Structure formats: C-alpha cells, structure tokens
Amino acid sequence: MLDLLPGGATAVPAFTAKDVLDLYALRASLGALLIRRVAMLGPERLGPASAALAEVRAAARARDHLGIREVDLRFQDALARTADLPQAAGTFERLTARLRMFVTVLDMDYIQACDTILNEDTVVFDALRDADGNEAARLWRVKIERCVRYMIAQLAEDDIAPHLWTTLAGRPRPGREEARGAAH
C-alpha cells in the first residue's frame, strides 16, 4: 500500500478523489455480492456479525468516534467472511485495509456519525436476519453512498466529474417504504 520511492524509501501515497471513488465502487459492488450470499446462508450463520455489531453498538453508545470507524470496518469484514466465499472475502478485506489507510491519512472524524453508523449497520444486519438479501444489499449501497460522499468532502480537490460516483456505482434503488411514500 506504500509508494516505493527512488533509493528504496517508501511513503504513504497521495490519493485523489478518483482513488476514493474507485475504492468505494469496488466495496459497494463486492459488498453487495457478499451480503446477498450471507442472506442465502441464513440467520444461523450471523453469529460473528452479531458480535461485531455489538461492538459497533458499544462504540456508538460511548460516543467513541475513533473506535467506531474500526468496529464498523470489523463488522463489514465479519459479514464478508460469513459469506463463505474466500476469494471475494479476501479481496474485500484487502480493500478494507486500503480504506483504513485513507481514513487515517485524512484523519477523519466520526463524532457526528456514531449514531448513523450504528443505524446503518443495524438495518443491514436486520435485513440479513430476515434473509432478505436484496434489501440488505440495497441498504449496504445506501451506506456506501453516504460514506463516499463524506470522504470526498474531506478532500481538497474539486475537479471530480459530478456524476462519476453514480457512473461507477449506480444509484441504490429506493426501499419498499421509500417507494410507497413516493407513490403517494
């Protein structure tokens, strides 16, 4: 993950908004695949994800804005491992390692996001517990959309094509409740 400099030195790479969008587009798509698989396996396989969600809940209650980002990523990785797709889960976890670097380099502050992260993780977990893979994947994409917008806002550059994220990742479809509300 480090850049190799002349003379054998290494440095933390500079990254751009396009790098962030690229990373999140991969996580959005691969995560949706993994989440659909988890739903297929059934709720009895959710033990590790349930334990990781309890850590998210504890960090949110404690307003631990440093810890919340780590336990949220552990929850996501637990879901990936639960899918029992070793290649996909391994790739997802490598993307998580890269994301950790981005978050650290940007010194991102999650103090205002503790409750949001907990709520997003909880609704994804609940949809998985209900074996609703499509809803869980949709909620995952909504979560990723919020994450990418937050991270992009932390970057100084503003030369991103305004619709690049939508082009790369698409838009999450509205949920059942949102679709009913739009029709009325």
Rank of each mutant, 00 (worst) to 15 (best):
Y110K: 04
L118Y: 13
M108R: 12
T104R: 15
D115Y: 02
V123M: 00
V124G: 02
I111A: 13
I111E: 13
T116W: 04
F125S: 00
T116S: 08
T122N: 05
L118C: 11
A127H: 01
I117P: 06
Q112L: 12
T116K: 03
E120D: 13
N119E: 15
V124I: 15
D132N: 11
I117K: 06
A127R: 04
V103Q: 13
D109C: 08
T122W: 06
D130P: 01
V103K: 10
V103M: 10
D132A: 08
D109M: 08
A113C: 09
T104C: 13
A131P: 00
G133L: 01
D126I: 07
V123S: 00
D126R: 12
I117V: 14
A127F: 01
N119C: 12
L128D: 05
Q112E: 14
V124M: 05
V105F: 06
E120I: 00
D121W: 03
C114D: 10
A113N: 13
L118I: 04
Y110F: 15
V123I: 01
M108F: 13
C114Y: 07
D132G: 02
A113R: 13
V103I: 14
V124A: 04
D121K: 10
M108K: 10
F125W: 07
E120W: 03
M108I: 13
V105A: 14
Q112F: 10
V105R: 12
N119P: 05
F125G: 00
I117M: 08
I117N: 03
V123R: 00
L106C: 14
T116N: 04
R129Q: 11
R129Y: 10
D121A: 14
V124C: 04
Q112V: 08
M108Q: 12
G133W: 02
T122P: 00
N119L: 15
C114H: 11
D126P: 01
L106F: 10
A131M: 08
E120S: 06
E120Y: 06
A131C: 07
D132V: 01
A131V: 05
D115R: 11
T104K: 15
D109Y: 07
V124R: 01
D130K: 10
D121E: 09
A131I: 01
I111H: 11
G133E: 01
A113P: 05
T116V: 10
A127G: 03
L118T: 04
